[in-house]
Amino acid sequence: MKYLRLEPKRPRIGVFDFTSCEGCELQLANHEETLVPFLKAIEVVNFREVSSYKGEDYDIALIEGCISRDDEVGRIEKIRAQAKVLVAIGSCACFGGVNRLKNAYNLDEANKEVYGDKPKSTAKVRAIKEVVKVDLEIPGCPINKLEVERIVQCLAFEVPFNFPVYPVCVECKQRFTTCMMEKGQLCLGSIAQAGCNAPCPAGGLGCWGCRGPAPDHNFEEFMTLAKQRGFSEKEISERLGFFGGFEGRR
C-alpha cells in the first residue's frame, strides 16, 4: 500500500524478552482493531507472542526487559550484532523498570527472599543501554501501542520519530483532568515525559514516572514544590525510584 506515492518498507522485526513481565510484548499484540494492518506493515521474523516461527534475519530488534542475569548478557550481545536497529521497549528495557528495586538490596538476600533455599543466578539489574548500544527507546509501563504504531510507521518510511518533549501535564490538562497535586496527591507528571496520554491522573492516581524524565525537566523546582506541599523526602525518593527512570536524580 503506497502512501503519498511512496512505498513503505516492511521492517523485518524480531521481538525478544529479558527480565520483564511480558506486558509490553502483550501490548504489541494489543489494539485489535488495527492489529491486522499492524502485522502487515511489519514482517515478524521472531516474536513468540504471535508466531512460532523463529527467524534470525531480523533488521529491527525490539527488546523487552532488563538485564538481571549473567546469561542474558551474551544473548543481548548476539541480538545487537544481528540487528541494524535495536529498540528498547518499556520501562524495564529503558531504565531497568520495577526490577531495578532489587538493586537497593544485597543480592544474596534478594535471592533468598525470592527463591528460598534454591538460589538462582542473579546480577544487579541494568537497563539495556548499560549493556549494549541502544538506537531508540520507547518508554512506558507498559508501552503505549498507539505510540508504537506511529513509530513503526516512521520506521517503515525511514523517517525520524519525535517523542513529545513536554511533560505529562500537557496531556493531563488536555484531558480535562483535575490536577492530582491539587487533590493532595503526589504526582511526577510535571517532570515526567509525556506520550502516554496521562491515564494515571485521569484514573485518580498521581503519575509514577514510568516514561522517565521529560527532556529539560525542572527537577530542583519539583523537589521544592513537592516538599512545600508536605511530601517527605522519603516518599518523593521512593516515587522517583519506582521505575528507575530518575536513577541518578534522586
Binding site: 513536554y166 511533560p167 501535564c169 500537557v170 525542572n218 523546582e221 519539583f222
Partner: peptide
Amino acid sequence: NKCLSCGS
C-alpha cells in the same frame, strides 16, 4: 528558574 515548562 521556577517554571516547570509544563504548559498548564
